[in-house]
Design a protein around this nucleic acid. Structure first.
Length: 157
DNA sequence: GCCAACGTTGGC
DNA sequence: GCCAACGTTGGC
């Protein structure tokens, strides 16, 4: 099993939206970056995902999700009405994929980006590097466990 | 194949 | 709202 981190703007789609999905899961559409897409293609059913809120007052990790369906074509790329429409992508050779994830749980507290940045144990995460814009990235088991250990601690930094 | 221009991400 | 950093596009 592998670990990942996925970013979402909470005003677009938040951990609470995922938690209240009537069908119990949601497809992760809209990824339009090759590096992020390639990471999604490596995801397996059962992989765990940190749900990260970006572009918000306190950006940080807010919860955990689980992969329930592996990469398949993102339908929004073929829809001219959709803001994620990609006219260069052809149905016979789709450019963009998505996965399905289901809600696992929220963390007991938000672990803010500022706190993640303050931890030398996490300095290799793309997330904390300056100018990083990658919206889907791998997390090592060590990083995963360390971040979960922060959940039980008092906020720092 | 280079690289300037442009659009987007996302923290602050 | 600002703007640095980055990825993509397209002219040459």
């Amino acid at each position: 099993m592998n670990y990942w981190l996925m970013k979402s703007e909470p005003n677009e789609y938040s951990i609470d939206d995922l938690a209240t999905e009537a069908k119990g899961y949601e497809h992760w559409d809209g990824v339009r970056n090759y590096q992020a897409r390639n990471f999604m293609r490596q995801m397996k059913v059962g992989d765990k995902v940190f749900f990260y809120h970006s572009n918000t007052k306190v950006p940080g990790i807010v919860g955990i999700a689980e992969v329930v369906r592996e990469a398949y074509p993102d339908h929004t790329q073929f829809d001219p009405e959709n803001s994620y429409y990609d006219p260069k992508s052809k149905p016979e050779n789709p450019r963009w994929d998505m996965v399905d994830i289901k809600f696992a749980r929220k963390l007991d507290r938000i672990i803010p980006l500022t706190e993640l940045k303050s931890r030398p144990e996490l300095m290799d995460m793309p997330l904390v590097r300056k100018g990083n814009r990658l919206s889907v990235m791998p997390v090592t088991p060590e990083q995963w466990d360390f971040i979960l250990s922060l959940e039980k601690q008092e906020p720092q930094a």
